[in-house]
Computed example of a mutant assay.
Amino acid sequence: MTVELKNQRIQINLDLSPELYETLNNLAQQINGDNAEVLLKAIALLEVAVEAKQKGKYIWIADDNQNLETEIIGI
């Protein structure tokens, strides 16, 4: 893929509920980014989760001591 194609952007419009829009804005503030960055990171995280599931792996949240606290399901 050429550099020109990698830098190309496509604009989309989204219809979001007020609650989801507020969540998007709050996340953007928390990561010191913008709404597009939140969506890009969310898609990247979902991609990792889907690939893991396809390989028979699981996604977990661990605490500082590596104790498993939460399994991410439904992906």
Rank of each mutant, 00 (worst) to 15 (best):
53 K>I: 02
67 N>F: 07
39 L>N: 00
35 N>A: 15
24 L>D: 03
46 L>N: 04
68 L>F: 09
23 T>Q: 12
16 L>F: 06
2 T>P: 06
44 A>R: 06
50 V>L: 05
9 R>W: 04
53 K>F: 03
13 N>Q: 13
30 Q>T: 06
26 N>L: 12
51 E>R: 11
22 E>S: 15
24 L>S: 05
72 I>Q: 02
52 A>D: 06
63 D>H: 01
7 N>M: 14
64 D>Y: 09
7 N>H: 13
6 K>M: 09
73 I>L: 10
43 I>D: 01
72 I>T: 05
63 D>E: 03
49 A>P: 01
14 L>T: 07
66 Q>V: 07
21 Y>Q: 14
14 L>I: 11
27 L>E: 07
3 V>N: 10
20 L>I: 12
52 A>Y: 01
55 K>R: 10
37 E>D: 12
67 N>H: 13
16 L>Q: 04
4 E>S: 14
25 N>A: 13
57 K>E: 14
43 I>K: 07
65 N>K: 10
13 N>E: 09
71 E>R: 15
65 N>R: 10
59 I>E: 01
1 M>C: 10
19 E>K: 15
61 I>Q: 09
60 W>T: 06
37 E>F: 03
49 A>K: 03
33 G>Y: 00
6 K>T: 06
61 I>C: 04
34 D>I: 03
28 A>Y: 01
21 Y>L: 15
74 G>R: 06
69 E>I: 11
47 E>N: 07
10 I>T: 13
46 L>I: 02
2 T>Q: 08
37 E>A: 15
46 L>V: 01
18 P>G: 15
11 Q>I: 09
71 E>A: 14
23 T>S: 09
36 A>G: 06
27 L>C: 09
28 A>Q: 03
18 P>Y: 08
70 T>M: 08
10 I>S: 12
20 L>M: 13
61 I>P: 01
41 K>S: 09
25 N>G: 08
3 V>Q: 11
66 Q>K: 13
43 I>H: 05
73 I>A: 10
47 E>M: 03
64 D>H: 11
32 N>H: 06
17 S>R: 12
48 V>C: 06
26 N>E: 15
63 D>T: 02
10 I>K: 14
17 S>F: 05
65 N>I: 02
75 I>T: 07
61 I>L: 15
66 Q>H: 13
33 G>S: 03
48 V>W: 05
10 I>Y: 13
51 E>L: 04
40 L>Q: 14
32 N>L: 03
21 Y>R: 14
4 E>I: 11
8 Q>V: 07
42 A>Q: 02
23 T>G: 04
5 L>R: 12
43 I>N: 04
56 G>Y: 05
72 I>H: 04
7 N>A: 14
39 L>D: 00
60 W>N: 07
62 A>S: 10
50 V>G: 02
35 N>I: 04
44 A>N: 07
